[in-house]
Amino acid sequence: MAVTVLYADDARTATAEALSEAGLDVREAASLDEATETLATTTVDCVVTAYDLPDGTGLELFATVRETAPDTPCILFTGVATSEIDTTAFEGLVAEYLPSGTPNAHERLRELIDELVTRRSQVGYPLPDDEDARLAALERYDVEDAATQAALDRLTELAAHYIDVDKVFVGVLGEHEERFFSCQGADLDPLERENTMCTHAILEPDVMVVEDTHDDPRFEHNDALDRLNIRSYVGAPLHGPDGAALGSFCLTDDEPRAFTDDEIGCIRLLADEAAEQLDLRRKLQAAQTEVEDG
C-alpha cells in the first residue's frame, strides 16, 4: 500500500509532484487550516510542511498531529534557517528538519520519509526489538470473534471476582493504539500507545506491577491514566507461540495498592490461559477456513 503523505505549503508544488512521481500518495494543503482539516478526515503516514504557512507555522501543524495521531512522523521541509525557527511553545513535539536547499532535496526528502515510516522513528515510547514480527503475528488473530470474546470474558470475570480491583481487561497492542477487550468494571475506548501502561508491560519478561503510578517516573505525568482513574496496575504479557507479546492481561485500581505473590501468580496463570485460548482459537479458525476453501 502506498505511503500517504500530507504536504502543506502554499508555494512549492514541484515538491508534491516529485513525491507523487516517486509513488507516494500525496495530499496537498495550501494553509494550516486546510492541512488541519485533512488530518481530521484522513489517516496519513507522514506529515511534511513548510515552516511559514499563510495562516500559521509548520510547528502549529505538528502540535495538532501530536494531539490526534502522535506516532506520525513530522518533517519540516523549509528554506528557513534553524536559528529563525521559534520552538519556544513547541518544546516536546520533536520533528525532522530538512533544508529545502539541500542538493537533490526531493530525493533526500523521499528517503527521509521512507526511513521515518519504516523505522517508526518518532514514536513516544519504547518499542519491542521485534515490532514488525509482533505486528505480523497479531494480524493472524481475530480477537473480536464472539467465541474468543466469551472465553476471555470468563477469565477476566474470574480475576475480578477473586482480586479486589476496579477494572480487569485484556489489552491488545496494535501499531498505534491499544484496544481493550472483555472489560470488567468499565468499558474502555482505544488509547494511543504512548499513554498506555501495557506498552511498557510487553517489554517485560514477566508480570509488570506498578503499585502507584504517581510514584513511577514512567507514568507519574501521564494524564490519560489519571482520567481513567488508574493508580495501580498489574499486567501479565500474552505471549504468542513465537514469543512476541500481543498485549497483556491487566488489572487496575483507582487507589495505590500492593499485590500479593498469590495474586500475581494467579494473574500469570490467567494470562497464560488467555494467550492459549487466543492461539487455539486462531488455529481452529485457520483449520476451518482451510476446510471451507478446500
Partner: peptide, 9 residues
C-alpha cells in the same frame, strides 16, 4: 517521558 523517547528514536 514521551518527548524524550521520541527524541531518542
Amino acid at each position: 517521558l514521551q518527548p524524550v523517547y521520541r527524541f531518542l528514536h
